[in-house]
Amino acid sequence: MKLFPTLFSANARVTPFGDASARLDAGRMGMWIFLAVLALLFLSAIFGYLFVRIENAATWMQGSPPPPPAILLSSTAALLLSSWTMHCALRAAQRGDKTQGKWMLATLALALLFLVLQAFAWVQLIQLHLTNPFTTGLYAWMFYVLTGLHALHVFGGLVPLCATTARARRCEYGPNDFGGALYTAMYWHFLDGAWIVLYITLLLGSSS
């Protein structure tokens, strides 16, 4: 942090808000807008998917397998569970409870499990029928693009999740200071919702 003295020094003006609750209020609004941005990103991708899916209604699934259901159901379960553990972590953080670290750690573990399962889904899809993924059709590619886009956001979310987990492990969050945990939790629930929408779209898209 010595490299960036003005960014992290206690004397630096890192916020124009006079009190913590006003700052949290603004942070929450900023986070909602950021999530709206990400929602539009995913919705545009889904729109693109539906556009080419509808244009190729007759040939879309010709000779192609549906996405591997068992693995995707497991990864969905892992992500849903991580949303619940994140909810518990935030509640604990807001109370200043000592369990906040454990819940955050559980969320982190489930996030990693989700990514591993998604990778398995990719590998299985490639092994099953798509021997050379670089020359296969639009159907498979759109699966990779949509799930890859989501996985990248989960992967990116690991950075704030690791940071909040470290702070929660030291029990640093309390009733007057839980902004970091709140913003990470909002992001995490969004990823959960985005995945449900994506998964349903992919399921419907791969039924003939």
């Binding site: 990103l41 991708a45 693109g48 670089f134 639009l138 590619w141 693009v145």
Partner: peptide
């Protein structure tokens, strides 16, 4: 954000030829 996804798809299309 819509430009974001457009450009991302363009990069993937150009790099891998996905066909979208």
């Amino acid at each position: 954000p819509v430009l974001g996804i457009t450009l991302l798809l363009l990069i993937i299309e150009r790099a891998f030829g996905i066909g979208i």
